[in-house]
Design a protein around this nucleic acid. Sequence first.
DNA 1: CGCGGAATTGACGCACTTCAACACGTGTGG
DNA 2: CCACACGTGTTGAAGTGCGTCAATTCCGCG
Lengths: 267, 267
Amino acid sequence: MHTPLMLTQEKIRENKPPIPVSPRRPNRSRHATWHDIILQLARGSRTVTARKGRDLIVAGNRHRTLYINRDGWLSRYKVLHTGGRQIVDFILPGEIFGLEACLFRQALYSVVAVTESSLSVVPFDTLQEALERAPFLAQALFWSAACQAAILGERLIDTARRSAYARVSHLLLELFVRLERHGLTEQTSFHMPLTQELIADALGLTTVHVNRTLRSLREDRLIAFDGKRITLCDFDRLCLICDFEKSYLGESALPALNEAPGAAITG
Amino acid sequence: MHTPLMLTQEKIRENKPPIPVSPRRPNRSRHATWHDIILQLARGSRTVTARKGRDLIVAGNRHRTLYINRDGWLSRYKVLHTGGRQIVDFILPGEIFGLEACLFRQALYSVVAVTESSLSVVPFDTLQEALERAPFLAQALFWSAACQAAILGERLIDTARRSAYARVSHLLLELFVRLERHGLTEQTSFHMPLTQELIADALGLTTVHVNRTLRSLREDRLIAFDGKRITLCDFDRLCLICDFEKSYLGESALPALNEAPGAAITG
DNA sequence: CGCGGAATTGACGCACTTCAACACGTGTGG
DNA sequence: CCACACGTGTTGAAGTGCGTCAATTCCGCG
């Protein structure tokens, strides 16, 4: 549960779960993705605004709330003994977070608002009640968690084996694809509020080297900046450089959504 | 699902799942861990022997079998476009694998026998049937997957932020603790069938550098070799070097097992 | 015995880090 | 209005951890 679950499902969406979701109800009328489920739970939930820099989840603390990120960017991170910080994931608009923090007795990671963010708050109890009413939901959760593990595995491989040049490229492509799903891109450009320090912390590099790498990418005409807006000038070449797997992040996510793992919501 | 589930539960065992496992049966007579569940399913299953180098799971293929590793070491890995190989995890005696391969339409990782291994084979259908009889099992699975994701997150942080010296130390400590649980250690030493190449592939290093790092560790009187047996000469100092988190891998796994996430087996 | 996989070691190069200085924009208070 | 602090971006120079290439040794095994 380290990235929003909705993303989770879409990322590996070409792999559908072989476990029949609701074996005892073959004629379920509606498939609900994990995302749908949460959105439904969110009806009537309150919305809060988090200032930039505000910690919403603190590693080590107990939490009992899920969040839906309506607008804004956040990051999930952990502070290391060395004083360094490792960002495990960014949370983009439209994505959900906080489940992992609820599951473990103490949250494994902190979540901080990178930009001012507006969030819907869903008490964990609401989900638990839904689970009691519809135990099939647990399979959807299970599937989400399995996907999440798979994604972290990919990220592990990236970090262990890629050059800085490829890592930065990969991150930009991943962000683009994830934003594209929510209609937050224009052509091949998007608004990018991350500082070079954040990028460095996410990729296991130094800010200095991220800066140099971005310059190289710009000099190679692969990307371009305009303030906080970034443009991917040569999508295909970028993909080649970092071996970006369209198949796992997916470009045509929506068509697969109806087949996505989920559960019949049964009142 | 990238490491054996049993280990999974023990690793983060100090974090218990807040979701009541069987809310509708408050008086359940017996807690069953995920490991117990599988062992029960394994009754009467056949046992096979895998020669060293044999691939049991092939990334990209469809699989319908779980395995219990009775004896032997295996590795879960992925071959990269560059030709390199990234080992995501090692599978030690007593651990379970193959669930992830069953879940996804195509297995994400391959699993190969590092040494000759003897394995119990459990058809995935057996688990599925159990799930239909006891949907609560899904929550146990969910919990396992969430733990797995957490572990991969830790590994990601390691790879992104640690030196070779610390990474090798960390791996040795982790292997020691995992083997200790199954009584496969003596004092501070254990049998280590991994080649330097395997270690390198797991840690994102080269064999040459692993070799040099091991030599450094030996010269610093932290470890010692005797054939394929390795001794951790100064456990505490090793822990300090790599900031080994006893809390997440756990040293006193057993006492917590009864409280471990599980489900009432009802049939 | 000879073969092949694994361990070991050296020389060299490069990617990335570290330290440091400076530029630029923004906000804030005098 | 300017002064100043502060966060962020940018660039340089020097150091180093790790990779690459290559040769040699060790060891188990048919």
